[in-house]
Nucleic acid binder design. Sequence first.
DNA 1: AAATGAACCTGGGGTAGAAC
DNA 2: GTTCTACCCCAGGTTCATTT
Length: 515
Amino acid sequence: MDQHMAMQSAEGLSHDHSFKVTGILGKVNGVATFGALHTACNNYGECQKMTLTPTKGHDDCMPALAEIPVTLAKYGHAPVKVIFTDNVRGDKSALERAFPSLLHDVSPVPSSTLADLALPDGWHVCRLGSTFQINSRMNCLMDELHGVDDGGELFIAMDLEWPVDRETGIYGKVSLISFAYEKAVYLIPVAQYTQDDGYLKLPSSLLVVLRSKRIRKIGVQVKGDLTRLYNDCGFSNSDELPFAGALELGPMAKDQNMTDHARVSLSDLTELVLRRYLPKDESVRVSTRWDDPELSSEQETYAALNVYAAWAIYKAFSTIPSVGPVTPSTPAGTHIQFMSRVGGLTVAYGYIARHQPKQFNRENVTKTRVVVTISSITVPAYLVRAELLSSHQETSLSTLGTQLPFSMLCCRRDLHTCAAHDQALDIHQAPPSPPPYQPIKTPYHMSELDTAQAVDLGEPSLMADDRPDTSSLEQATSDAEKDAHGLHQAESLAELVSCAISIEISEVRSRVIGV
DNA sequence: AAATGAACCTGGGGTAGAAC
DNA sequence: GTTCTACCCCAGGTTCATTT
């Protein structure tokens, strides 16, 4: 059976875990013997690998998958060109290690061509090197906080630096705190406050600012920074008040629909929001020199730009019109984004129609539905929910809207309010044909294949006539009952796979695709 | 290299709304 | 009123991006 599966081609591959089968398998003292059944099928739906695994971790399934490219080469099949998975982000790197052919002719997203970020005119960098200077500036901040309305908040950008030895992984205590506020960047070296026990004893005014919930500290992963600083002060096992007021830019970017996830880096946000490139020199960023008594100009520039970027991004967010859900009270004419059901992708733009009839194309306009006028489409192939259409069949946006603008019924939860939008079109040109793929050795350990089969790897000589006779299989496929729905799905998938397999005609960004 | 937390997967249960 | 479907939430486990 294993050999039969190994002899099948697999230019397209899909894989997934099932947890149902392991649930009905025998248990030992009530404990399941396996956690999941991992299955990989080729583009004809033929099973290529099936493995019972203790967990769904990569360590349990990738070695089995990594045998596939070896057997493909052994039997003269083309290497895997595309893999479908339900967890692209999670599986991509592991799959690319197991299937080196997935990296063939993949063009990474080009590096930034944007201008470098720089402190604008009017901004200055101020080094607070003494306790007196720190207390003076922090007290000014507290005075400004007292000046705002009762319960109001003060917003400052914050960043930390600490020394790290990349070779050993050893890292030191926080050595520099950076603030950006109202055209000034404050650099506070705190290594000087290290006590004999190794913990930091920060000036009291600085602690007051760090503990204030009303002084919001803006940054990327700033919550983690505050936790780190709190621990470096030796407060983790005490009743000391926590450092509070973190305001994360990542979730803000997600709320603004600027990214589809909150885990976004400061440099990516700088490009997305400020349209500037934030230089992050690795030799400066990860360095053991952050606790030096005197920082270099490169270090000061790095720290100042980082914290300024956080400040500028926050200011940019403040000027963007609020994005929010469409509610029953959202007025007609409000600009909206039409979002995909999965992934939160914007598929079209438009506005809420002025006339909301009781029925639209024979479908009821309920309180969860709203009629919108679509003015531009960004994803023409997006399939609109079947229950919203009189045909009761999922239909693409491009089919519904042969002429713009057009009206359609939407689920309110699929809509977000937004600012007026001008659609821009990208024009791509097909690159020249790629050179043929040359096999690359997989890093995964080949147990049996390494010794018994790998000797044949250089001789892909098994021809059709050499294949074992399968006419006497226990159940012939010709005996199977036809499944019309399944056939339709299979045809659609085959079309999708064949499309993905023939992607040489256009630029390839990744050969790991989500399903 | 290490710490942290976001994000993803799964199955199951509950709920709201639409269709009949 | 019943049935069906979609959606949401949960917990547990896993992986990965981000920070220095």
